[in-house]
Amino acid sequence: MFVSLDAMRGIAALMVVLYHSPTLFGPIASRGYLAVDLFFVLSGFVIAHAYDARLATNLTPSAFIKLRVIRFWPLYAAGLALGLCREILLIASGNHYALTPGLLALCLAAALLFIPAPLASRDYQLFSLNSPSWSLLHELLVNVLYAVFFRFLTIPVLCGLGVASYIALALTAPASGISDTGFNLPGTLPAIARTLFSFTAGALLFRLKLKAPKISVALVLCVLMAALALPFGGRVYDLLFVALMSPALVWMGTACTISPKLHKLAAWLGLISFPIYAVHRPALAIAEAGAERLSLPPAAVGIGVLAALLLGCTYLAVPFDIWSRRKLTELSAVRPIVQKTAA
């Protein structure tokens, strides 16, 4: 169900990879950071679709939180492990950017508990070992808030929360846009606002059940890629994307037509989207350092690391993620929910 949303998630994750690798591919995804806001909308929609009925009946907030931690933890841990490998390589090579062993141990201990550990030497990044983890933490926290306050979150309340969080985002967003919000401590306030707004917009899309026009998924994906590749932008563009384009793309994606031939491809893109997002940053950092040391053509290294990500993340999704979540579910004694669209 909603396999078109899987395709959107996969394409958006690949655009994030391109955005984070300008030295390898050039600036071909200048607005790729806005994919995070699309992820938040998708999360709100899918969480409401998958859990609203259960939260209203027999699923307690504590059980829901366990389910969400289980969903996040294996791939988050995989990204953390790769980030740790990168730090060890930095230390071994005597790189001036490397963390001291003490700070590395502190960051690792905090990250294992999913706790931010901002360091002045790392521009106060919340997660120095794998910077995109900030958005996973924000998504997990907003999921928790949704479950805890579920019985109060009527449609009018969600509308009010959406308006309030968007005003907060508009007031706190930097003049240059929201590209640098979220990953470090100074950008926390606008990041909270963009998370709340986009997640709320997604939940409202499900609750309101507005009928979307049936259009080709290829068209929606092309619009998405163009929106994330725009070579110019700034604060106004970012705010418009968050408020209008991102929810509209998800809304249209819920009614997209997709041919049987593309169905498997779309499902695969959704399958690898979370693994790619979880591990891509340290993988790119290792590849970029290797390319520089060995004087290799950046484009060739870029193609190689992208191919490795696609192949490796297919394995991370199946069997690693599925096996890990099954084991964690057995240990936690929480009855899982079957979802065709990963939240």
Rank of each mutant, 00 (worst) to 15 (best):
T172F: 00
S93Y: 01
A168H: 05
A98H: 03
L112Y: 01
H138F: 14
L113R: 11
W134S: 14
L185I: 07
G79E: 05
L129W: 00
H96N: 12
L90K: 07
A105M: 13
D123R: 13
P174E: 13
L99A: 08
F64S: 05
P174L: 09
L112S: 02
L84E: 09
L136M: 15
D123H: 13
A63T: 05
L99E: 13
Q125I: 02
L153G: 07
H96Y: 02
I155T: 15
F114G: 03
N184V: 06
E87T: 06
L129N: 06
L113Y: 01
L103K: 13
P174K: 06
L75C: 03
G182V: 03
V69C: 11
A147R: 04
L89Q: 10
A105D: 04
T154F: 00
A120T: 12
I65V: 14
A170Y: 03
L145P: 07
V69K: 10
L55H: 05
R71V: 02
A81I: 00
C159S: 09
L189A: 14
A168L: 15
T172P: 01
G160E: 12
S131R: 07
R151N: 11
G79K: 00
L145D: 07
R71M: 07
C159W: 10
R68Q: 12
P118G: 05
L104V: 07
R86L: 06
P116F: 04
G160V: 06
R54Q: 14
F72Y: 12
V163T: 14
G79H: 01
I70S: 11
L145R: 03
L145Q: 04
A56D: 14
L55Y: 02
L169V: 05
F72L: 15
S121L: 13
Y146L: 10
L141E: 14
L112H: 03
F150H: 14
Y146A: 09
L171T: 05
P61W: 12
A168K: 06
N184A: 15
A110R: 00
P174C: 11
T154I: 01
P74T: 02
V144R: 06
P156H: 05
L158P: 02
A98P: 08
G160N: 08
T172A: 14
Q125T: 10
S133F: 11
E87P: 01
N95G: 09
G83A: 09
A164N: 03
L59C: 08
S62K: 07
L103R: 12
L153V: 07
L185K: 04
N143H: 11
L104P: 03
A78W: 01
V142E: 11
T188R: 07
S128E: 02
K66H: 10
T100D: 13
L108H: 01
I65T: 13
A111T: 10
V148T: 09
P61G: 07
L119M: 08
A111W: 01
L90N: 09
I178N: 04
A92T: 07
L84R: 03
F127Q: 04
Y97Q: 15
W73V: 04
W134T: 02
A77P: 00
R122L: 05
L108A: 09
P116K: 04
Y146G: 07
V69T: 10
I115M: 14
T172N: 10
G94Y: 06
